[in-house]
Amino acid sequence: MARLDGKVAIITGAASGMGLAGARLFAAEGAVVVMTDVAEDALRREAAAITAETGATVTARTLDVTSPQSWADVVSGTVAEHGRVDVLVNNAGIHIAKGVLEAELEDWNTVMAVNTTGVWLGMKSVIPHMQAQGGGSIVNVSSIAAIIGGEADAGGAAYSASKGAVRSLTKHAAQWFAKDGVRVNSIHPGSVFTGMAAAAGFTKESMGAQLGGNVPLPPHVGDPEDIGYGMLYLASDEAKYVTGEELVIDGGWTTR
């Protein structure tokens, strides 16, 4: 039996990076996967590829995580098509590399809208369905920037604040909805080599070399699948007694 057999999962930011890695793993483990993103072309291409690779039921739905109506459309459409929502992975996020003094109000509001408000809207949209069906699992992707300072936030003050808010919001929701069988946990990635890092001119080797002073475990930078496996564990019934926890996946960065 696969680890997510019979579960319906919505994953945000699924067109690339960690969200895409999670979608691939979820599909391979038997889930019905609803991949969402604002990058429509990449999203539909990747969803089709996963379907071809796994034979799983994978759909692509455009989602602006900052929009209540967009959330309502995705969740109602998922329930209409599949009957339930068992898992929500709030993975979508952005980063603006400006500090406290450099950031403008527009920068701050943009990052907070995607990284924090988007997580709140996602939970607000799916929890009533999870309550009605007797439970579910929510996985919120935060960051080690919610735990430590310095290079962990790559110079982004709003990013650090937004991910700290996700950390606290996760614990709030875990407490209030445990009675309904709804588990809410957060993942805190460290350095991960994604398409965004590649677009910035890094290779995995150069990124690892730059971060070797912070991350003790070679190659000093993770793969998107490393975070995807954390999503998979928290989404599965293997984590049925886990809620309000922080799963740090960072190669040992926060041990320093």
Rank of each mutant, 00 (worst) to 15 (best):
V85I: 15
S70V: 08
L105K: 08
R61G: 01
A52D: 12
A80K: 14
R45Y: 00
M112T: 13
E46G: 00
E53L: 04
G77R: 10
I94A: 01
T57H: 03
E81H: 06
V111I: 14
E104V: 12
V85Y: 12
H82D: 09
A48S: 05
I94R: 06
E102D: 14
G77V: 11
Q69A: 13
N109S: 11
T51V: 13
D73Y: 08
A103R: 06
M112Y: 04
V65Q: 12
L105H: 04
S67H: 04
H82T: 11
V111P: 01
H95N: 10
A97K: 13
D64T: 05
V75R: 05
A103N: 04
L101S: 09
V74D: 04
T54N: 01
T59A: 03
A47I: 03
S67Q: 05
L43M: 03
V100Q: 08
A52Q: 09
E53S: 11
V74W: 05
I94D: 04
V74A: 07
I94S: 01
E46T: 02
S70F: 04
A92Y: 01
Q69T: 10
T51Y: 00
R84F: 07
A97T: 13
V100N: 06
T62A: 11
T110C: 07
G83P: 08
V85G: 01
H82R: 09
T66N: 03
V65A: 10
T54C: 03
V100L: 15
L63H: 02
W108I: 14
T54A: 02
R84E: 08
I96K: 08
T59R: 05
P68S: 06
S76G: 11
L101V: 14
S76F: 10
H82F: 15
N91H: 07
L43C: 01
S70G: 14
I96A: 06
A60G: 00
A80R: 14
V75K: 04
H95F: 13
T62K: 10
K98G: 02
A103S: 13
D73H: 10
I96V: 15
G99K: 04
L63C: 10
H95L: 15
